[in-house]
Design a protein around this nucleic acid. Structure first.
Lengths: 233, 233
DNA sequence: GCCATTTATATACATATGTATAGACATGTG
DNA sequence: CACATGTCTATACATATGTATATAAATGGC
């Protein structure tokens, strides 16, 4: 992906790419595909790690890892950036599902937040590649890639904002600026998660507790600010 | 820097590198260096940007940018990772100086934090490359590189913690867990700064205000939690 | 000027990259 | 079976990379 960012800024129109996509599998004459987009994404996932950012993967090494000739790559993705963006989408979807389950399991006052955070940390410790990439690769890469990451963060902020508003109402304890509080929480959790990635597993529980305290500060502060606003208004 | 991370993990001992360093300039026979470490760092700075992470720069393109033959690079740095680490050190030092000045200029209650944040945002808007790199490149790269970035973050946390404790005492308004509050603030400011990088300059004032509100939540919450602890204790 | 030293360059090597073109292979349909 | 189609591979090309070796160039001391 060298110079890939500069390339991806030259818009070429997506029409040709759509037509050449390997999408007619199973519905007519022609060889069946032996490899899918998902196989290529898995190959890329097998290559990224703490010291290999997705933006440093070359098309040829992904193809090699997937067991295909380099030129076959183009039948599935326009370039490696497109694969990276597809991967971020998948990662966000996966994490959203996990956090969604955690939200359903929560029942007590602050437990939505705590159980979400616990699920998050579990995934972190489970060596869940999707989550690792989301946490690590948010700030570099092509414009489109960064937008994809930002979009995932926004999903979490929006969901958390809804939760905060609902909790405030349920407890008759309003909070100031729920959208900002949600944004602060989300960004902080992602930052703490990214730091935790480089620490041994034994430290994860401590990071979780630290993060819980931080989140409590934000929520408590937002509640206090709301009651000050009411008193002042 | 392809595979540079894997290379940097194979410790080779720094002794040889120290001996071969271009350090005897001006004190004996021998050609004078025509280029310095700082020139190479400046060349690298000229190449990084929103879509070119430092970890993607090759030795040859840095040398080209600096106007030297590739092999001369080795007289100044062992490899590109060593340059990257030196750059992070420089960036941290530069930012620490700027924030230090802001701290000296502050006089009122919360103004240490606000003026520091304003200085931070000014630097952001001034296209200060050092700051951009610190914000963007914290989570990928070699172990040594990530440690260098983490070290810079720690410096800011420690300074802010001192400020928070001092403010709490001056106002007779204790705060709970000042170290955690400082960590939350630092991580959040860096995350918000990184997001701001990809937005037009007109949005920076809005991001600053959002960040101020978030920081107020944390401080207010920490104060509330401290008074609750006192009440419970 | 000669010499030792230090720095920089040129050249070479092996290997890696993305992409284009031509051909091979696998599949379903008539 | 022949054919059209869709997918994959092999080969080629131009260019890029990091690093090794030999040589050139610049400098100060004698």
């Amino acid at each position: 992906m060298h110079r890939m960012a500069a390339k991806s800024l030259k818009a070429r129109g997506g029409s040709g790419a759509g037509k050449r996509r390997a999408g007619a599998a199973g519905t007519g004459p022609g060889r069946r595909p032996t490899i899918s987009r998902e196989d290529l994404i898995s190959a890329a996932l097998g290559l990224v790690g703490p010291h290999r950012s997705i933006s440093t993967l070359s098309l040829r090494e992904i193809a090699r890892e997937a067991g295909i000739a380099p030129n076959s790559f183009y039948r599935h993705f326009r370039d490696t950036d497109e694969l990276a963006i597809a991967l971020i989408d998948l990662a966000g979807r996966s994490l959203r599902k996990i956090i969604g389950h955690a939200r359903h399991r929560a029942s007590a006052e602050r437990s939505v937040i705590r159980t979400s955070l616990e699920s998050f940390m579990e995934q972190l410790g489970a060596d869940e590649k999707f989550l690792h990439i989301l946490l690590r690769e948010g700030n570099t890469g092509s414009e489109a890639f960064k937008r994809a990451v930002e979009r995932e963060l926004r999903f979490f902020e929006d969901e958390l904002c809804v939760d905060l508003v609902r909790l405030a109402r349920a407890n008759n304890s309003p909070i100031a600026e729920p959208a900002l509080a949600a944004k602060a929480i989300t960004r902080l959790v992602f930052a703490m998660g990214a730091s935790a990635l480089d620490l041994p597993r034994e430290h994860h529980a401590a990071i979780l507790e630290q993060t819980v305290v931080m989140l409590r500060m934000i929520v408590t502060g937002a509640q206090r600010m709301a009651s000050e606003n009411i008193a002042a208004g």
